[in-house]
Every structure is written in C-alpha cells, then in structure tokens.
C-alpha cells in the first residue's frame, strides 16, 4: 500500500522538522518580516561601519558650507553648523541602536525576573511585586521615562536606564500570566516531586512556555525604546548635542523647519525606517511563532 507508506513518511518528516525550523520557514515566507530583517541588517551594518562609510566626522563643522541642500557632496545636505547630515545620521544610528537594545535588555532582564518570581511563588511575593508594578503603571510610560531621566541627568546611560526601567512592567506582565497558568500543570508538579530546584523549574520548565511572547516583545520593545529615547532627547533630556542622536537632531533642526525642511525630514525618516522594519520583523515573528494569533 504505497499511499499509506507515503503518508507515514510524510508524518515522519513533519515530526523531524524541529520547532525552530518550522518557525524559521514560516518567517522566511513572510515578505514583511524578510524586508524588515534586511533593512535592520543594512542599518546595523551601516551604523557599525560609520567611521568607514561616513564621508565626514559627525562633528566636522564648517560654517562656510552651512545649510547646503542635499547635493552630490552632501547627499542629505548640511546643518546649521555645516555638518554633513548623512554622516551624523550614521553615527547617530549607533546611539539609537545602542539605546534601543540596551534599554530593552534592561527591561527584559528585570521584567522577566520579576514576572517569573511573581508568577512562580505567588501569594505574598506576587502581591508585593504586582502592587509595586501597579504604581509604575499608574504613571504614563513616557512621563515615567521623563521623570527618571530628569533625576539621572542627561547622557546616553541615563536615557537607557530611563527608557529601560519604564517598560519593566510590560515584560513582567507578559511573563507572569502564562507562568501562573502553566504552574498548576502536572509536569511542573512532577518536577517538584523529583525535587528539582526552584531555579531549575523556572528556567527549564516555565520560561520556555513564554519564550515566544518574550522574543516578540523584545523585538517590538527595541522599536519602542528607540522612539522613547528619541522623544527624550527631543525634549532636551537624555542624549545631548553635539552627540548626533536622531531625536536630538530633530529637536535641534526644528527651528529651521520653515527654510530648511530637509534638516527635519532625514532624521525623522531614519527613525521611522528603522522602527518600521523592527515592527515588521516583530509582527512576522509573532505570526511565525504562534500561527493561532495570525489573522
């Protein structure tokens, strides 16, 4: 019976393909995610290689060539101090990417830990952690970031911490819920029964269940962090001139919006492009990891 055999091998093949492989193959079929990933890759490489690629140094001032419209020498024009905007964007991207990834790293680290502890131990510990997070959630996100960065002073590190801390509750929430519901299942009880340590249960048995929402939240979190950090520097907090952070560049150039609109256009485009690709990739990742969520 050939057909039955074929069917058997087909089933076998499906089983052989690992979960990761399955996710990857779905991801590759998603055009948006692929485009997003390629753009992210290009931006990251360009920013890392900024000293090689950039035609000028980011603080290379020359008043004699200020306010040049985009041209062959300065493909995105020059700013009020005659600095090449393209070069500044390349260097600025390094800051935005750093802030985005490190801030998300901070919120993921603390958020996941708090959420896991809260969900796993439950009871009083859960209560205390959740009430404290409630307090943080009562302050609108950006407001919290502003307050924290106000108290830490200006600078890249301050921006990272401010943005990172303000999104800790989001991570804690997405981790806590599923852990709470998985905790009661038999295989966890079995693990407890064979005397596995709490840490082992949390890391080996509980966290893998929330892995896909965490990965998705990290991708989207980087996007949000980049915008939040740019917002901070736009308000004069966080990263300061002459550092070429994208939000700070926008903030500095908005005085010239009437006569030199290109100065506003390019930094904004840079942020939007990077964030769109991160979001496209994040969406694709979510669809690939949990097809049920796909509409």
């Amino acid at each position: 019976m050939k057909t039955a055999e074929q069917q058997d091998t087909a089933i076998h093949e499906i089983k052989k393909r690992s979960m990761t492989g399955e996710v990857l193959s779905r991801l590759v079929r998603n055009k948006g995610a692929v485009i997003g990933f390629i753009i992210i890759l290009i931006v990251v490489v360009a920013c890392v290689l900024a000293p090689v690629i950039a035609p000028y140094h980011y603080d290379d001032q020359d008043i004699s060539r200020k306010f040049l419209e985009p041209c062959a020498d300065f493909i995105m024009g020059t700013d009020n101090l005659g600095r090449d905007i393209f070069s500044r964007l390349l260097y600025g991207g390094r800051i935005s990417l750093q802030v985005g990834f490190i801030a998300t790293g901070i919120s993921a680290l603390f958020g996941i830990t708090l959420g896991a502890i809260s969900g796993y131990y439950g009871g009083k510990i859960d209560n205390v952690i959740m009430r404290v997070l409630d307090i943080f959630m009562a302050i609108p996100n950006l407001l919290l970031a502003i307050a924290i960065s106000a108290s830490l002073g200006t600078g890249i590190a301050s921006a990272m911490i401010a943005v990172g801390v303000s999104s800790i509750p989001q991570f804690a929430r997405i981790v806590r819920g599923p852990i709470l519901s998985v905790k009661g299942q038999e295989y966890i009880e079995a693990a407890t029964a064979i005397d596995a340590s709490d840490m082992r249960i949390i890391f080996r048995h509980l966290l893998p269940n929330v892995l896909s929402p965490i990965i998705v939240q990290i991708t989207l979190g980087v996007a949000n962090s980049i915008i939040a950090a740019a917002s901070l520097s736009f308000l004069g907090l966080g990263v300061q001139p002459p550092q070429p952070e994208w939000g700070a560049m926008l903030s500095a150039s908005r005085v010239y919006i009437v006569d030199h609109s290109y100065m506003v256009t390019f930094p904004g485009l840079a942020i939007a492009l990077l964030v769109i690709s991160l979001n496209l990739f994040g969406d694709g990742l979510r669809d690939a990891m949990d097809p049920r969520l796909k509409d």
């Binding site: 948006g32 996007a223 915008i227 740019a230 917002s231 736009f234 939000g247 926008l250 903030s251 908005r254 919006i257 609109s261 506003v264 256009t265 930094p267 904004g268 942020i271 939007a272 964030v275 769109i276 991160l278 979001n279 496209l280 969406d283």
Partner: peptide
C-alpha cells in the same frame, strides 16, 4: 504599520511643515 512606527514628534513637524 506606519502609524505605530512613526515618531509622533516627527509626524507633528511634518504636519506643521
């Protein structure tokens, strides 16, 4: 997709422009 990715302050500046 564009809306969630666009920094609102930039969008505001574009609107002003």
């Amino acid at each position: 997709m564009i809306g969630i990715s666009m920094p609102m302050f930039w969008f505001a500046l574009l609107l002003i422009m």
